[in-house]
């Protein structure tokens, strides 16, 4: 498996130094992404999905964040490689796009300059050549009259266009993996769909793998082939998208589906997951979902492991005996 995978994360843990000591935000995260595969990471806000993405490119604030475990990209460990090695890989082998494109683009440089400087940081091309290829990249992500947009500043563009610029910038060096951190959350619904389509198409055309971080199961269903469900800093379910939708095995996954708006629920109140995500500083022992779980048993005070069942991995003692409702 390690041979065929592009990204292989093993036992990733991220800790933050706080006034009350080191607090783990995610722990024991293991998953792999094959070349060209589109994997979604889904969870509520604060579950650790964003820090997981940031940790892979060393983007966590170095003063307070500590990372443990291993993350092999094409066989090389991202978490221990030198700064300059990681720099050469960032943008070239792994691209990344963020939640708020307006704030992710440097406001005082033109979008064209920001794209070509990425290209020129990784390849030995002339200014002219970089400009031409940047314009081509802008055209490819669907920006109209890219020659003219090249000299525009980010604030002139709409949010959707800004995210397209971010995508063009992240993909200009043809990375094998794109980490997308909630790239559609800040956008209108119609624009959201366009960005999802764009990512889908580019990933297909280039055989580029995608790690798509979101809180929206619906978006994942359209885009990804596999999904990791994160709860309170742990993977609770890892499965192919169809099987998760048909029959989730973890009560949390099922609860997420239940709380999604859908037509059959018209006129009825939307079910919500009661209670709150426990804080990382005072995490309960045993199953972390226990207090909010409708299927909890006394045995759940023990710590469940992420175990393989048939086609998937689930972190629940009752994965075998429960039949949970899916989305279909």
């Amino acid at each position: 498996m390690a041979v065929s995978s592009l990204l292989d994360v093993d036992n990733l843990g991220i800790f933050f130094e706080t006034p009350r000591g080191m607090v783990p935000t995610v722990s024991g995260i293991s998953f792999s992404v094959r070349p060209g595969e589109r994997v979604g990471i889904v969870g509520e806000s604060g579950c650790g999905k964003t820090v997981t993405g940031l940790s892979l490119l060393g983007l966590l604030p170095p003063q307070v964040a500590r990372v443990s475990g291993r993350a092999l990209f094409e066989g090389r460990n991202l978490l221990t490689m030198s700064r300059s090695q990681l720099r050469r890989l960032s943008g070239a082998g792994i691209g990344m796009i963020f939640q708020e494109p307006m704030r992710a683009l440097d406001p005082v440089f033109t979008i064209g300059e920001q794209i070509s400087e990425t290209l020129r940081a990784h390849t030995d091309v002339s200014r002219r050549e970089a400009r031409l290829r940047s314009i081509a990249a802008l055209a490819e992500v669907g920006i109209p009259s890219p020659e003219r947009r090249y000299d525009d500043y980010p604030h002139i563009l709409s949010g959707g266009m800004q995210q397209r610029v971010m995508i063009a910038m992240a993909l200009i060096c043809r990375p094998r993996l794109l980490i997308a951190d909630e790239p559609t959350t800040a956008l209108d619904v119609t624009v959201q769909a366009q960005i999802i389509d764009l990512l889908h198409r580019l990933s297909d055309e280039r055989g580029m793998a995608l790690l798509f971080i979101t809180h929206d199961l619906g978006v994942v269903a359209e885009l990804c082939t596999r999904v990791l469900i994160l709860y309170a800093g742990q993977i609770v379910e890892d499965a192919a998208i169809e099987s998760v939708y048909r029959a989730p095995k973890h009560p949390y996954t099922a609860a997420l589906f239940q709380s999604m708006p859908r037509l059959s629920l018209r006129g009825k109140p939307l079910p919500v997951i009661g209670g709150r995500v426990p804080g990382f500083a005072d995490m309960p022992g045993g199953c972390r979902f226990r207090d909010r779980c409708a299927y909890a048993q006394p045995g759940c005070v023990r710590k469940p492991e992420l175990e393989s069942y048939d086609d998937r991995r689930v972190r629940c003692f009752r994965a075998c005996d429960l039949t949970l409702p899916g989305a279909v």
């Binding site: 963020f98 440097d106 990425t118």
Partner: peptide, 21 residues
């Protein structure tokens, strides 16, 4: 700021991030 994070994610050299941006 978030754009500084983007510049790191793009793999720009540290010197360019500081002296240019």
């Amino acid at each position: 700021s978030q754009y500084m994070r983007t510049l790191l994610a793009k793999g720009l050299p540290q010197s360019q991030i500081f002296w240019k941006h």
